[in-house]
Design a protein around this nucleic acid. Structure first.
Length: 416
DNA sequence: CGGTTTTGACCTGCGC
DNA sequence: GCGCAGGTCAAAACCG
């Protein structure tokens, strides 16, 4: 089982909806500002299976409104084991956590995590009426990767025991509730969070604080050499339920260390990307209490395409990667690397426009998954052997996602 | 044989 | 300054 590819599978399957309006027509509506119609259409294509009780507008809903995509409802049961990762009071998460809807492609976001990490483009930090901590969008589904993105910004976020309880072992959080996280705001007691844009601006402002600020010094300035601590400028944390110890994410990794860390009897494994000159690292550990859950933390951004499928003779990447694929000797891969998001994107959009540049440079690998946002049926196992013929499903995806990209740029300032 | 994994040692940052 | 903890190195073992 591969959580990443399972999500991706769902995307493709849903775009194959037989009676769906064409992506082009949806894009046309977007361009005409016919957002409600688009949302209606999308809701029609991707009916929500989990009826949600009405409650105050959540961040998910607000984001959905902005993107004009109906984000899938969020389930939280599977977040419970997350407490195992944080139950140690000394364990801190160095920035606001963002749990991304399963419709987003983890592999794509790992390749371009700055889509959501760049503080100036931060989608998520959003206010709580009582001036509490920012929101986090929580998301998970059975056999899904749940994703947190951290930019190691200076707002040091810790999960104190009571918050851990709320986060993990307490009553199931309502899907549209917030996961409260305590921000270390020692020196900013009087700061009030405003709603929506104001709030986002505040956060950006904080991030622009002078580098000497203690908040900023906390992370990212370490420059260890030798046994160095990596520059944690871009960090993506993914929780997934999987039996694999090193699930395929489209990239190739070499294990270079293993360590038992405090608070978790399960060892943490350290991996480096095997791509030449790529300095992206990740470490993987299982939950302290529930070993079913795997916590994968990525440091850095892949500034290259994922490797081509093994045995592929058309890859321009040949020679860039070492010849073998990182593999777990105890947990064999179940999904071929052809699931890599970039290669998939290139396959997905054989547009007649013939983009003159590698579409991955347009972050298409990430946006390629955006249409899956409304999807809530991509839970569980997806069978690689029932892959739909995507080339016929999305005849003109390039324009669609260009439109989406423009929309994201317009609404969020995402410069993709 | 080449690449990966294993594993103990080492290095550095941080808290006390 | 010391000890702890996290992260990395590097040689040996392992694997296909």
């Amino acid at each position: 089982m591969n959580a990443f590819d399972g999500t991706y599978r769902g995307v493709r399957t849903c775009w194959a909806a037989p009676s769906s309006p064409s992506p082009r027509s949806l894009l046309a509506m977007l361009n005409q500002g016919d957002n409600n119609d688009v949302v209606d259409q999308i809701n029609e294509i991707f009916p929500q299976t989990n009826h949600q009780p009405e409650q105050r507008s959540s961040l998910r809903e607000r984001v959905a409104a902005r993107v004009e995509f109906n984000l899938p409802p969020l389930e939280t049961q599977n977040n419970r084991p997350f407490a195992a990762f944080f139950r140690n009071p000394s364990t801190t998460v160095p920035s606001p956590l963002v749990l991304i809807s399963p419709g987003f492609s983890p592999s794509a976001m790992l390749q371009f995590p700055n889509m959501f990490i760049d503080p100036s483009h931060m989608i998520l930090p959003s206010p709580v009426a009582n001036g509490g901590p920012p929101e986090a969008v929580e998301s998970s589904g059975a056999d899904h990767a749940t994703m947190m993105i951290s930019n190691n910004d200076p707002m040091h976020v810790a999960l104190p025991p009571q918050q851990v309880a709320a986060f993990g072992s307490g009553p199931t959080v309502n899907e549209t509730d917030l996961i409260n996280m305590e921000i270390d705001r020692k020196n900013e007691d009087e700061e009030e969070y405003k709603e929506d844009e104001d709030e986002e601006h505040n956060i950006v402002d904080e991030l622009d604080a002078e580098p000497s600020s203690p908040k900023r010094r906390k992370f990212g300035e370490s420059t260890m050499i030798g046994a160095t601590r990596s520059c944690k400028s871009q960090r993506v944390i993914i929780q997934m339920e999987t039996e694999e110890n090193n699930p395929d994410d489209g990239f190739r990794w070499r294990k270079y260390g293993q360590k038992v860390v405090k608070g978790n009897p399960n060892p943490r494994s350290y991996y480096k990307c095997t791509y030449t000159a790529c300095d992206v690292k990740k470490h993987v550990e299982r939950g302290a209490e529930d070993v079913k859950f795997l916590l994968v933390t990525y440091d850095g951004i892949h500034e290259h395409d994922p490797p081509a499928a093994r045995g592929s003779s058309s890859s321009g990447l040949k020679g860039q990667y070492s010849s073998s694929v990182s593999q777990d000797h105890n947990n064999h891969r179940t999904v071929p690397p052809s699931s890599s998001s970039a290669s998939e994107a290139l396959r997905l959009f054989p547009s007649s426009l013939d983009p003159p540049v590698d579409m991955t440079q347009f972050y298409m690998t990430g946006l390629a998954k955006l249409p899956s946002l409304p999807v809530n049926q991509n839970h569980g196992l997806m069978n690689w052997n029932v892959e739909p013929e995507i080339d016929r499903v999305i005849p003109d995806g390039t324009e669609v996602f260009k439109g989406i990209r423009d929309r994201l740029n317009l609404n969020f300032g995402l410069n993709l």
